[in-house]
Design a binder for these strands. Structure first.
Length: 819
DNA sequence: CCATATCGGGG
DNA sequence: GTGTACGATATGG
């Protein structure tokens, strides 16, 4: 029979005959959950002989290989000579086909030892990845399959054994998404998996709301479902997922919290989290402290991980990635307003009213998770389609992995053999390599008016394409080659050369990405905004911008120090050239990596634009200097202990009154709200109103209010995490001291607990005066003035020239009366 | 200057 | 599992 479907999850299993078969789980066009089995794909790798002369004898030797491993026999099924390239050079490789994916590592080790073998390649690409690459299948994109119905032990509507399968369209899956979230008993601030039960599980989707809990609530909302205990709650949650049949089950930090917690509580209650479509156990792949929780048959997404990756470094800079902040920024809607530390108390006291609120809160979290996923879907899907790997992997991949995934798929057209993933040792060797990065033109601290900012459009990608920078074009021959600017290595000046006789695969692939992106941007310009096209161009932008970093990433297969060095060398050269030219007409205020900030002074905007045109006439075709914006005012500040202006620490206001702040994120979650608010307001007054004196008066007023204890205690709360067991602390910080006192009063405080505290008035050390917010009646205003307010605004006022008068090093305290 | 420590998300 | 392996930033020697 014929069927069209969207593959979502791909893996392989070994069938009764001992053969590895690929399974593609997905959704058919008529809405069924399906599993397609493809048993027509063979595992293989490549062996590269030292010279062509020995190929015949090597093949004979390889074909004799037999390895016993546990119960199975691994062997070479066939070999075949394949003319390939390796980093641009022609080589003969032998394709070695083996009887099982697990035979690859075993056989590979033996092949490596055969004399006359130079290297073994592509033995480290997983079977299912290899399948997707070779079959040119992207998950989530429509596939046609011809096959026979098959009887298999899987919780799907249809299993097909494929005779043929191919990707047939561009059309994408519209997935069934189920957001979920758990609430747990939290007498202590951090719940303990062994002791504290799960109290609620919430689910949300289009036309679907459900909260499961095990305390009966009278006159509760319809969506609340009651069960008798935690065990039943877990079973009911499993049943809910089974019946809903989502394509994506989505949580927020569910890799780090919800799933590990569910697993632990399921074990405690002696029940199985039986949601995988083949009834197998859920895989928790440890990666440092965090695990990646992978389901079989459908996708588990931790949307937090994708959002964090995709937004950092982008336009919107979030100060925190907690669900409330992210949802407010992206959905204009925050979490339900409850005091989560009160949940345990409400549960113990059977406080019906409060528990109903917590149910609502639980549902809201699931809803926000669901909505964020909907919002991110265009980007998530574009990456999945471009990179061609399952959506659950894309959701967790770094940009370096994006580049490598993209190269792996697109390198095939060049017949390039894929370099091996570097060994642990070579990674650590490579990470010793250091090289010069971007150029920074240091600003003099101060307030400037009337600025123009230029930047190079996609500077690093266009440098790579314009100068043919690629591991395959690197040459020692300076004839017919691009010559880099001088590069200083160990006090010696060197240059690299990249041939101009043929184009490297990285420049070709990258140029294709850039031109595709430009085409999409033109369509958007012509036809107006379109979220899908916008996601597509943004994905291509991120991908293109990641190539340079990838070349210098020690864990990369195509790592090349020479390439990475060359990219930054060219970049420094171009930016410095523009700065030198700009200096003849304007005052240059600042420059960093790919941007130049100039003061217009008596010159006009037109003069700035003419200058831009002039520069662009001299650049290679793909490179371009663009106007980023004109700014009314800008403040450049210096970091402490630096006299010159700091890198990337400035704030600008444009003609529309919107403020752009860079590098002020020293104010993080572990500072008081007071410090954050003061800094924000000061920047506002300086930039928007051009009123430094008013800002000073404002800070003076805040200090006065602090001293008169007129500021809300909530704004004084500082939080900090305990990273280890209390006993193992040598350095007793304020948060450690608070925790110690709590323990003395009988509390249990495991590692990982967040301690909230306020510094109280009195004599002695800071740590002895740190107390829980509920135990604090007042606060030490001098501490907050000197350690929170002043540090938050100090550098801003210094840049404005108030240094000597108002802020004298650490003795600021005595001077602050005048402040 | 480079090596080590901390932190994030979740309740 | 055709293994594994966070990444960015702050501090401290």
């Amino acid at each position: 029979m014929e069927m069209q479907f969207y593959p979502i999850d791909v893996d392989y299993v070994t069938n009764k005959a001992g053969k590895a078969v690929i399974r593609l789980f997905g959704r058919s066009t008529d809405g069924k959950r399906v599993c397609v089995i493809d048993s027509n794909f063979e595992p293989y790798f490549y062996a590269v002989p030292e010279s062509k002369t020995k190929v015949a004898s090597i093949r004979k030797e390889m074909e004799k290989i037999r390895v016993k491993h546990d119960e199975s026999l691994f062997y070479v099924s066939s070999t075949e000579v394949s003319e390939r390239k390796y980093l641009g050079k022609d080589i003969s490789a032998i394709k070695v086909v083996v009887n099982h994916p697990k035979a690859v590592p075993a056989v590979k080790d033996i092949v490596k030892k055969i004399s006359g073998i130079a290297m073994v390649a592509e033995a480290d690409i997983t079977f299912e990845k290899r399948y997707l690459i070779d079959k040119k299948i992207s998950t989530l994109v429509l596939c046609s399959v011809n096959g026979e119905e098959f009887d298999a032990n899987a919780d799907v509507d249809l299993v097909l054994e494929a005779k043929s399968i191919e990707q047939t369209g561009e059309e994408m899956l519209s997935p069934k998404i189920l957001g979920f979230d758990i609430e747990v008993y939290n007498k202590l601030r951090i719940p303990r998996e062994e002791k504290d039960p799960i109290l609620m599980v919430g689910f949300y989707s289009d036309n679907f709301k459900k909260v499961i809990t095990w305390k009966k609530l009278d006159k509760a909302e319809k969506y609340i479902h009651f069960v008798k205990d935690e065990k039943e709650l877990i079973l009911e949650a499993v049943k809910t997922i089974k019946e809903f049949k989502p394509d994506y089950l989505v949580g927020y930090f569910s890799d780090g919290f919800d799933f590990p917690y569910l697993r632990s509580r399921a074990k405690k209650n002696n029940v199985e989290l039986n949601i995988n479509l083949d009834f197998s156990k859920i895989s928790f792949r440890k990666r440092g402290e965090l695990s990646s929780v992978q389901l079989t048959g459908f996708a588990h997404l931790d949307i937090y991980r994708f959002i964090k990756r995709i937004t950092s470094g982008g336009e919107i800079q979030l100060e925190s990635y907690d669900l409330d902040t992210v949802a407010k920024e992206m959905l204009n809607e925050g979490k339900a307003d409850v005091e989560i530390p009160e949940l345990a108390g409400a549960w113990d006291d059977n406080n019906q009213k409060k528990l109903k609120e917590f149910c609502k809160y639980n549902l809201k979290d699931a809803e926000l998770t669901f909505r964020l996923t909907e919002k991110m879907l265009p980007n998530l899907h574009e990456f999945t389609k471009i990179i061609g790997q399952p959506v659950q992997d894309i959701c967790r991949m770094t940009f370096g992995q994006f580049v490598e995934g993209y190269l792996l798929r697109n390198i095939q057209q060049f017949r390039e053999l894929v370099p091996n993933r570097p060994s642990y040792n070579s990674i650590s060797d490579r990470s010793m390599d250091s090289y010069e990065g971007a150029f920074v033109y240091q600003p003099s601290p101060g307030l400037y008016e009337n600025l123009a900012v230029f930047d190079f459009r996609s500077l690093y990608p266009t440098i790579i394409t314009s100068h043919n920078i690629c591991p395959s074009t690197l040459t020692l021959d300076s004839k017919n080659a691009y010559e880099t600017p001088e590069i200083e290595v160990n006090k010696r000046k060197i240059k690299h050369y990249f041939t101009s006789k043929h184009e490297g695969f990285i420049p070709i692939i990258l140029r294709d990405i850039l031109t595709r992106r430009n085409r999409i941007k033109e369509i958007i310009k012509k036809n107006g905004k379109d979220p899908i096209l916008d996601a597509r161009q943004y994905s291509l932008k991120i991908l293109a911008n990641s190539f340079y970093g990838y070349l210098g990433f020690s864990g990369g297969r195509w790592y090349s120090l020479e390439c990475a060095q060359s990219v930054t060398a060219y970049a420094r050269n171009y930016v410095q050239q523009v700065i030198e030219k700009a200096k003849k007409e304007f005052e240059v205020v600042y420059g960093d990596t790919d941007s130049i900030f100039i003061r217009l002074g008596k010159k006009t905007k037109k003069d700035a634009l003419d200058f831009l045109k002039e520069i662009n006439r001299g650049l290679p075709s793909l490179m371009e200097l663009e106007l980023e914006n004109f700014y009314v005012r800008g403040i450049f500040v210096s970091k402490k202990s630096e006299t010159k202006g700091a890198k990337k620490k400035y704030a600008l206001i444009d003609e529309k009154g919107s403020i752009k702040v860079r590098g002020f994120e020293t104010i993080r979650g572990d500072w008081s709200i007071l410090a954050k608010e003061v800094q924000e307001k000061v920047l506002d007054m300086v930039l928007k109103e051009n009123a430094p004196q008013k800002a000073i008066n404002f800070v003076k007023e805040i200090i006065k209010q602090a001293r008169q204890k007129k500021i809300d205690m909530k704004k004084m709360i500082i939080r900090r995490n305990l990273t280890k067991e209390i006993k193992s602390y040598e350095q007793i910080g304020p948060h450690v001291a608070v925790a110690k006192k709590m323990i003395e009063q009988g509390a249990e405080i495991p590692a990982g607990t967040t301690i909230y505290y306020i510094i109280n008035e009195g004599k002695g050390m800071i740590r002895d005066r740190a107390k829980l917010p509920e135990e604090s009646s007042s606060y030490d205003s001098e501490y907050y003035v000197n350690n929170q307010v002043i540090p938050a605004v100090k550098s801003i006022f210094e840049a404005l020239g108030y240094k000597e008068t108002y802020l004298k090093e650490d003795h600021a305290q005595s001077k602050l009366g005048e402040f």
